[in-house]
Protein backbone atom coordinates (compact mmCIF):
# COMPACT_ATOMS: atom_id res chain seq x y z
CA UNK A 1 0.00 0.00 0.00
CA UNK A 2 1.33 3.38 -0.96
CA UNK A 3 0.28 6.58 0.64
CA UNK A 4 1.49 10.03 -0.10
CA UNK A 5 2.31 10.86 3.48
CA UNK A 6 5.77 12.28 3.09
CA UNK A 7 6.83 14.49 5.95
CA UNK A 8 4.46 17.43 6.02
CA UNK A 9 5.65 20.95 5.46
CA UNK A 10 6.74 22.30 8.81
CA UNK A 11 6.51 25.86 9.90
CA UNK A 12 10.10 25.90 11.08
CA UNK A 13 11.38 25.23 7.57
CA UNK A 14 10.77 28.38 5.58
CA UNK A 15 11.26 27.75 1.90
CA UNK A 16 9.94 24.22 1.72
CA UNK A 17 6.45 25.26 0.65
CA UNK A 18 5.90 26.44 -2.89
CA UNK A 19 4.11 29.52 -1.58
CA UNK A 20 7.28 31.34 -0.52
CA UNK A 21 9.40 31.46 2.62
CA UNK A 22 6.54 32.46 4.90
CA UNK A 23 3.83 30.17 3.60
CA UNK A 24 1.93 27.96 6.01
CA UNK A 25 0.70 24.48 5.21
CA UNK A 26 -3.05 24.01 5.46
CA UNK A 27 -2.63 22.09 8.72
CA UNK A 28 -0.54 24.88 10.22
CA UNK A 29 -3.09 27.47 9.14
CA UNK A 30 -5.96 25.47 10.64
CA UNK A 31 -4.01 24.83 13.84
CA UNK A 32 -3.20 28.53 14.25
CA UNK A 33 -6.87 29.44 13.81
CA UNK A 34 -8.08 26.83 16.32
CA UNK A 35 -5.50 27.85 18.92
CA UNK A 36 -6.61 31.47 18.50
CA UNK A 37 -10.20 30.39 19.20
CA UNK A 38 -9.23 28.50 22.38
CA UNK A 39 -7.30 31.50 23.67
CA UNK A 40 -10.16 33.90 22.92
CA UNK A 41 -12.44 31.77 25.06
CA UNK A 42 -9.88 31.55 27.87
CA UNK A 43 -9.59 35.33 27.78
CA UNK A 44 -13.30 36.15 27.75
CA UNK A 45 -15.24 33.44 29.59
CA UNK A 46 -15.47 32.41 33.24
CA UNK A 47 -16.37 28.72 33.08
CA UNK A 48 -15.52 27.04 29.78
CA UNK A 49 -15.76 23.28 29.30
CA UNK A 50 -14.64 20.95 26.51
CA UNK A 51 -17.11 18.31 25.35
CA UNK A 52 -14.92 15.23 25.41
CA UNK A 53 -16.33 11.94 24.19
CA UNK A 54 -13.12 10.11 23.37
CA UNK A 55 -13.99 10.49 19.69
CA UNK A 56 -11.27 11.67 17.30
CA UNK A 57 -12.59 15.23 16.93
CA UNK A 58 -12.74 15.80 20.68
CA UNK A 59 -9.29 14.24 21.02
CA UNK A 60 -7.91 16.70 18.45
CA UNK A 61 -9.66 19.54 20.31
CA UNK A 62 -7.97 18.57 23.55
CA UNK A 63 -4.61 18.25 21.79
CA UNK A 64 -4.99 21.78 20.39
CA UNK A 65 -5.97 23.11 23.82
CA UNK A 66 -2.89 21.48 25.38
CA UNK A 67 -0.69 23.19 22.77
CA UNK A 68 -2.49 26.54 23.08
CA UNK A 69 -1.66 26.96 26.76
CA UNK A 70 1.68 25.11 27.04
CA UNK A 71 3.58 25.03 29.30
CA UNK A 72 0.61 25.87 31.54
CA UNK A 73 -2.20 23.35 32.03
CA UNK A 74 -5.44 23.59 30.02
CA UNK A 75 -7.68 26.07 31.89
CA UNK A 76 -10.90 24.14 31.13
CA UNK A 77 -12.57 21.04 32.46
CA UNK A 78 -14.02 18.20 30.37
CA UNK A 79 -17.65 17.10 30.00
CA UNK A 80 -18.92 13.83 28.58
CA UNK A 81 -22.53 12.84 28.05
CA UNK A 82 -22.49 9.07 28.50
CA UNK A 83 -25.39 7.36 26.73
CA UNK A 84 -24.70 4.14 28.62
CA UNK A 85 -24.15 2.56 25.22
CA UNK A 86 -20.65 3.83 24.68
CA UNK A 87 -17.80 1.61 23.55
CA UNK A 88 -15.89 0.38 26.64
CA UNK A 89 -12.56 0.98 24.84
CA UNK A 90 -13.52 4.62 24.38
CA UNK A 91 -14.62 5.12 27.99
CA UNK A 92 -11.31 3.64 29.16
CA UNK A 93 -9.43 5.98 26.83
CA UNK A 94 -11.45 8.97 28.09
CA UNK A 95 -10.65 8.25 31.73
CA UNK A 96 -6.97 7.60 31.01
CA UNK A 97 -6.50 10.87 29.10
CA UNK A 98 -8.34 12.98 31.68
CA UNK A 99 -6.14 11.50 34.43
CA UNK A 100 -2.95 11.90 32.39
CA UNK A 101 -3.49 15.64 31.94
CA UNK A 102 -4.91 16.11 35.42
CA UNK A 103 -8.18 17.48 34.04
CA UNK A 104 -11.51 17.47 35.84
CA UNK A 105 -13.97 15.21 33.99
CA UNK A 106 -17.72 15.78 34.40
CA UNK A 107 -19.89 12.88 33.23
CA UNK A 108 -23.64 13.25 32.63
CA UNK A 109 -25.35 9.86 32.41
CA UNK A 110 -28.36 9.36 30.13
CA UNK A 111 -29.18 6.29 32.25
CA UNK A 112 -29.75 8.49 35.33
CA UNK A 113 -32.33 10.50 33.41
CA UNK A 114 -34.10 7.34 32.22
CA UNK A 115 -34.06 5.88 35.73
CA UNK A 116 -35.72 8.90 37.33
CA UNK A 117 -38.23 9.37 34.51
CA UNK A 118 -36.92 12.60 32.99
CA UNK A 119 -36.21 10.70 29.77
CA UNK A 120 -37.89 7.73 28.15
CA UNK A 121 -36.16 5.04 26.12
CA UNK A 122 -37.00 5.28 22.41
CA UNK A 123 -38.66 2.37 20.62
CA UNK A 124 -35.64 1.98 18.32
CA UNK A 125 -33.29 1.80 21.30
CA UNK A 126 -31.19 4.69 20.00
CA UNK A 127 -29.96 6.95 22.74
CA UNK A 128 -28.17 9.58 20.63
CA UNK A 129 -31.11 12.02 20.57
CA UNK A 130 -31.50 11.54 24.34
CA UNK A 131 -28.18 13.26 25.02
CA UNK A 132 -29.56 16.78 24.65
CA UNK A 133 -31.40 16.88 28.00
CA UNK A 134 -28.46 15.64 30.14
CA UNK A 135 -26.13 17.97 28.20
CA UNK A 136 -28.25 21.07 28.88
CA UNK A 137 -28.74 19.98 32.49
CA UNK A 138 -24.96 19.67 32.99
CA UNK A 139 -24.37 23.06 31.38
CA UNK A 140 -26.97 24.69 33.58
CA UNK A 141 -26.05 23.03 36.88
CA UNK A 142 -22.32 23.68 36.41
CA UNK A 143 -23.00 27.20 35.04
CA UNK A 144 -20.73 26.56 32.05
CA UNK A 145 -20.68 29.70 29.89
CA UNK A 146 -18.61 28.41 26.96
CA UNK A 147 -18.94 24.85 25.70
CA UNK A 148 -16.38 23.62 23.16
CA UNK A 149 -17.78 21.16 20.64
CA UNK A 150 -15.88 19.19 18.02
CA UNK A 151 -18.47 19.83 15.29
CA UNK A 152 -17.09 20.53 11.82
CA UNK A 153 -18.90 22.42 9.10
CA UNK A 154 -18.00 19.78 6.53
CA UNK A 155 -19.94 17.12 8.45
CA UNK A 156 -23.44 18.10 7.58
CA UNK A 157 -25.29 20.86 5.73
CA UNK A 158 -26.95 22.39 8.81
CA UNK A 159 -23.56 22.50 10.50
CA UNK A 160 -22.22 24.34 7.44
CA UNK A 161 -24.28 27.34 8.55
CA UNK A 162 -22.99 27.29 12.13
CA UNK A 163 -20.86 30.06 13.62
CA UNK A 164 -17.57 29.47 15.46
CA UNK A 165 -19.15 31.24 18.46
CA UNK A 166 -22.78 30.13 18.52
CA UNK A 167 -25.08 31.75 21.07
CA UNK A 168 -27.62 29.51 22.82
CA UNK A 169 -30.57 30.97 24.70
CA UNK A 170 -31.63 29.99 28.21
CA UNK A 171 -33.26 26.88 26.74
CA UNK A 172 -30.04 25.91 25.01
CA UNK A 173 -31.73 26.40 21.65
CA UNK A 174 -30.08 27.40 18.37
CA UNK A 175 -31.93 29.75 16.04
CA UNK A 176 -30.22 29.67 12.64
CA UNK A 177 -32.10 32.77 11.47
CA UNK A 178 -30.85 34.90 14.35
CA UNK A 179 -27.15 34.12 14.31
CA UNK A 180 -24.65 36.91 14.82
CA UNK A 181 -22.63 37.80 11.74
CA UNK A 182 -19.06 36.62 12.29
CA UNK A 183 -16.43 38.76 10.58
CA UNK A 184 -12.66 38.57 10.32
CA UNK A 185 -11.40 36.74 13.40
CA UNK A 186 -13.48 38.86 15.76
CA UNK A 187 -15.65 36.52 17.80
CA UNK A 188 -18.49 38.04 19.78
CA UNK A 189 -19.01 35.94 22.91
CA UNK A 190 -21.28 38.30 24.84
CA UNK A 191 -24.19 36.54 26.49
CA UNK A 192 -26.71 37.13 29.25
CA UNK A 193 -26.85 35.18 32.49
CA UNK A 194 -28.34 31.77 31.74
CA UNK A 195 -27.29 31.84 28.10
CA UNK A 196 -24.17 30.12 26.90
CA UNK A 197 -21.99 30.03 23.82
CA UNK A 198 -21.12 26.89 21.90
CA UNK A 199 -17.65 27.19 20.45
CA UNK A 200 -16.46 25.11 17.51
CA UNK A 201 -12.67 25.37 17.13
CA UNK A 202 -12.64 22.73 14.37
CA UNK A 203 -15.27 24.52 12.25
CA UNK A 204 -12.99 24.78 9.24
CA UNK A 205 -11.41 21.33 9.45
CA UNK A 206 -12.42 18.40 7.26
CA UNK A 207 -12.33 14.72 8.20
CA UNK A 208 -9.14 14.33 6.17
CA UNK A 209 -7.50 17.31 7.90
CA UNK A 210 -8.28 15.73 11.28
CA UNK A 211 -6.67 12.46 10.29
CA UNK A 212 -3.63 14.14 8.72
CA UNK A 213 -3.20 16.16 11.89
CA UNK A 214 -3.50 13.05 14.07
CA UNK A 215 -0.75 11.51 12.00
CA UNK A 216 1.49 14.57 12.02
CA UNK A 217 1.17 15.08 15.75
CA UNK A 218 1.38 11.38 16.61
CA UNK A 219 -1.86 11.49 18.61
CA UNK A 220 -3.03 8.24 20.22
CA UNK A 221 -6.64 7.20 19.50
CA UNK A 222 -8.93 4.54 20.95
CA UNK A 223 -8.06 1.29 19.20
CA UNK A 224 -11.51 0.87 17.63
CA UNK A 225 -10.56 3.49 15.03
CA UNK A 226 -8.22 0.91 13.50
CA UNK A 227 -9.13 -2.37 11.80
CA UNK A 228 -9.97 -5.20 14.18
CA UNK A 229 -12.18 -8.29 14.23
CA UNK A 230 -15.56 -7.83 15.86
CA UNK A 231 -18.98 -9.54 16.10
CA UNK A 232 -21.33 -7.35 14.08
CA UNK A 233 -24.73 -7.54 12.45
CA UNK A 234 -26.33 -5.62 9.58
CA UNK A 235 -29.01 -2.99 10.18
CA UNK A 236 -30.07 -0.18 7.84
CA UNK A 237 -27.12 -0.94 5.61
CA UNK A 238 -24.54 -0.56 8.38
CA UNK A 239 -22.52 -2.92 10.56
CA UNK A 240 -23.56 -2.44 14.18
CA UNK A 241 -21.68 -4.02 17.05
CA UNK A 242 -23.38 -6.85 18.91
CA UNK A 243 -23.75 -6.07 22.58
CA UNK A 244 -25.85 -5.44 25.64
CA UNK A 245 -27.31 -2.18 24.30
CA UNK A 246 -30.10 -4.04 22.50
CA UNK A 247 -28.80 -5.48 19.28
CA UNK A 248 -29.12 -7.77 17.46
CA UNK A 249 -32.76 -8.73 17.08
CA UNK A 250 -33.73 -12.34 16.31
CA UNK A 251 -33.67 -11.91 12.55
CA UNK A 252 -30.31 -10.18 12.52
CA UNK A 253 -27.53 -12.77 12.21
CA UNK A 254 -24.21 -11.95 13.85
CA UNK A 255 -20.97 -12.46 11.98
CA UNK A 256 -17.32 -11.84 12.70
CA UNK A 257 -15.79 -9.25 10.35
CA UNK A 258 -12.66 -7.17 9.97
CA UNK A 259 -13.93 -3.63 10.54
CA UNK A 260 -13.02 -0.25 11.95
CA UNK A 261 -14.97 2.80 13.10
CA UNK A 262 -14.82 6.08 11.18
CA UNK A 263 -16.79 7.88 13.85
CA UNK A 264 -17.29 6.94 17.47
CA UNK A 265 -20.62 7.56 19.14
CA UNK A 266 -23.43 5.61 20.68
CA UNK A 267 -23.13 1.88 19.90
CA UNK A 268 -26.79 1.74 18.89
CA UNK A 269 -26.38 4.04 15.91
CA UNK A 270 -22.68 4.12 15.03
CA UNK A 271 -21.85 1.82 12.16
CA UNK A 272 -18.50 0.21 11.43
CA UNK A 273 -16.97 0.04 7.97
CA UNK A 274 -15.21 -2.94 6.42
CA UNK A 275 -11.52 -2.10 6.59
CA UNK A 276 -8.08 -3.61 6.83
CA UNK A 277 -6.53 -0.27 7.80
CA UNK A 278 -4.48 -1.00 10.89
CA UNK A 279 -2.23 2.06 10.69
CA UNK A 280 -2.85 5.79 10.51
CA UNK A 281 -1.35 5.90 7.02
CA UNK A 282 -3.76 3.21 5.83
CA UNK A 283 -6.69 5.05 7.42
CA UNK A 284 -5.77 8.29 5.62
CA UNK A 285 -5.48 6.48 2.29
CA UNK A 286 -8.85 4.84 2.89
CA UNK A 287 -10.58 8.13 3.72
CA UNK A 288 -9.02 9.96 0.78
CA UNK A 289 -10.44 7.29 -1.51
CA UNK A 290 -13.82 6.97 0.20
CA UNK A 291 -16.96 7.57 -1.79
CA UNK A 292 -19.09 8.20 1.30
CA UNK A 293 -19.03 10.94 3.94
CA UNK A 294 -18.32 9.79 7.47
CA UNK A 295 -21.83 10.60 8.65
CA UNK A 296 -23.43 8.97 5.61
CA UNK A 297 -21.36 5.85 6.13
CA UNK A 298 -21.71 5.50 9.86
CA UNK A 299 -24.59 7.44 11.41
CA UNK A 300 -28.11 6.10 11.42
CA UNK A 301 -29.43 9.17 13.24
CA UNK A 302 -28.71 11.47 10.29
CA UNK A 303 -30.70 9.33 7.89
CA UNK A 304 -33.94 10.19 9.66
CA UNK A 305 -34.75 13.19 7.44
CA UNK A 306 -33.30 15.98 5.32
CA UNK A 307 -33.29 18.26 8.35
CA UNK A 308 -32.51 15.73 11.12
CA UNK A 309 -29.38 17.56 12.25
CA UNK A 310 -30.95 21.02 12.03
CA UNK A 311 -33.85 19.87 14.18
CA UNK A 312 -31.59 18.32 16.82
CA UNK A 313 -29.33 21.36 16.85
CA UNK A 314 -32.28 23.71 17.34
CA UNK A 315 -33.14 21.77 20.51
CA UNK A 316 -29.65 22.17 21.90
CA UNK A 317 -27.79 19.11 20.58
CA UNK A 318 -24.01 19.22 20.14
Amino acid sequence: MTTATDSPVRTDDPGQNSGGPFALSHLDALEAESVHIFREVAGEFERPVILFSGGKDSIVMLHLALKAFAPAPVPFSLLHVDTGHNFPEVIAYRDRVAAEHNLRLHVAHVQDFIDDGRLRERPDGTRNPLQTVPLLDAIESNRFDAVFGGGRRDEEKARAKERVFSLRDEFGAWDPRRQRPELWSLYNGRHAVGEHVRVFPLSNWTELDVWQYIEREGIELPEIYYAHERDVFARSGMWLTAGEWGGPKDNEPVERRLIRYRTVGDMSCTGAVDSDATTIQAVIAEIAASRLTERGATRADDKLSEAAMEDRKREGYF
Binding site: T3, T5, N17
Partner: peptide, 13 residues
Protein backbone atom coordinates in the same frame (compact mmCIF):
# COMPACT_ATOMS: atom_id res chain seq x y z
CA UNK B 1 -5.05 1.26 -3.09
CA UNK B 2 -4.41 3.96 -5.65
CA UNK B 3 -1.05 5.65 -5.58
CA UNK B 4 -2.44 8.87 -7.00
CA UNK B 5 -4.17 9.90 -3.80
CA UNK B 6 -2.54 13.10 -2.76
CA UNK B 7 -2.74 13.70 0.95
CA UNK B 8 0.33 15.80 1.59
CA UNK B 9 0.17 19.24 3.13
CA UNK B 10 -0.90 22.02 0.84
CA UNK B 11 -1.76 25.67 1.17
CA UNK B 12 -5.15 27.00 2.22
CA UNK B 13 -7.19 29.51 0.20
Amino acid sequence: MSTTIETTATSLL
